[in-house]
Write a protein that binds this DNA or RNA. Structure first.
Length: 295
DNA sequence: GAACAGGTGAAGT
DNA sequence: ACTTCACCTGTT
């Protein structure tokens, strides 16, 4: 890794593939927002940064000490995505998906934030997920200043656990709110311990996290992949099910130990291109077609 | 208004 | 084991 730090910005010359838009819009995170220069600004691990690519350099505007301690790992800068992409490109469809999402990086996010965020994500759309998380951070995160702007950290389990019913209700998270409270409580009491989960295999860790109410296989796999870096976790949502239905050759097992990363290319491609399911095929039994009769 | 949006879990076959 | 359904809320 070759980089210089000058004028408040880490400039990396050999960052390899890095596309801010594909990284931050591929659906793995909810707290990074675009700026006017094709860059993105966000918060992780209690720190703020702005990221952009210019003249072939990756430029991360941040506190000098944070590049090595936070952002280098967070942006997964030590992984060669070119190698990964060529390993993934086993057929025409995969090539299209990888090419579409070229420069996407799977962020090494914080376990707690990832868990809570994906609990919010169930049967919800992206803009609303973002809005709920933003409200949560403004309500109970810590306010701090960086780069001349105001930011909020993601709240701790303690802060979330101590929210009143009224405060929780103000997030407009609906039926997901009690799930979030339970998750925070489990972390607080030690019933769920992220370091212990890290030491487990993917299967065992999934089983453990699924003990939480509101955490089924899909949310669990997002947590494992984005929050615990269990790269073989393969979240299968409605879009991935459309991929499976259209391209029977695509199965998690074909992509090895980093199948979860391949999954993110598929998800992003399918969602952005509004991949349809084959006619007559039933893709999901949830949130799709249901007659709701309110009493 | 009804349908839909990155699921889950309980209850019914 | 597989299918159906309710669940909050905001948007189209």
């Amino acid at each position: 890794m070759i980089f210089t730090y000058f004028d408040g910005t880490a400039r990396i010359s050999d960052a390899g593939l890095f596309s801010p838009v594909n990284t931050f819009e591929c659906g793995q995170c909810f707290r990074w927002l675009p700026d006017e220069n094709g860059g993105y600004t966000g918060v992780a691990f209690g720190k703020a940064a702005n990221v952009r690519v210019e003249d072939g350099y990756l430029r991360i505007k941040c506190d000098p000490s944070d590049f090595e301690t936070v952002w280098r790992a967070y942006f997964d800068l030590d992984r060669d995505y070119e190698v990964l992409n060529s390993v993934f490109s086993i057929d025409d469809f995969t090539q299209r998906a990888v090419s579409f999402g070229n420069g996407m990086r799977i962020l090494r996010q914080e376990p707690f934030e990832t868990l809570i965020s994906f609990i919010f994500s169930q049967c919800n759309n992206i803009s609303r997920i973002r809005s709920i998380i933003k409200s949560l951070c403004m309500l109970s995160g810590e306010k701090f200043e960086a780069m001349g702007k105001t930011f909020f950290t993601f709240p701790t389990a303690l802060k979330i656990n101590s929210l009143s019913e009224r405060e929780l209700q103000s997030l407009r998270a609906g039926y997901r709110a009690p799930y979030v409270r339970e998750a925070a409580n489990a972390v607080l009491t030690g019933s769920i311990n992220f370091n212990a989960l890290r030491a487990l295999g993917t299967e065992e860790a999934r089983k453990e996290i699924m003990r939480l109410p509101g955490v089924g296989k899909k949310v669990a796999d997002c947590f494992l992949l984005f929050g615990l870096q269990k790269y073989d976790a393969f979240p299968a949502d409605v879009w991935i099910k459309k991929v499976f239905a259209n391209y029977p050759g695509i199965t998690p097992s074909r992509f090895g130990e980093f199948a979860g990363i391949a999954q993110q290319y598929f998800f992003y491609y399918a969602r952005e291109n509004k991949l349809e399911s084959p006619k007559g095929e039933i893709i999901s039994d949830a949130c799709e077609k249901k007659e709701k009769h309110n009493t």
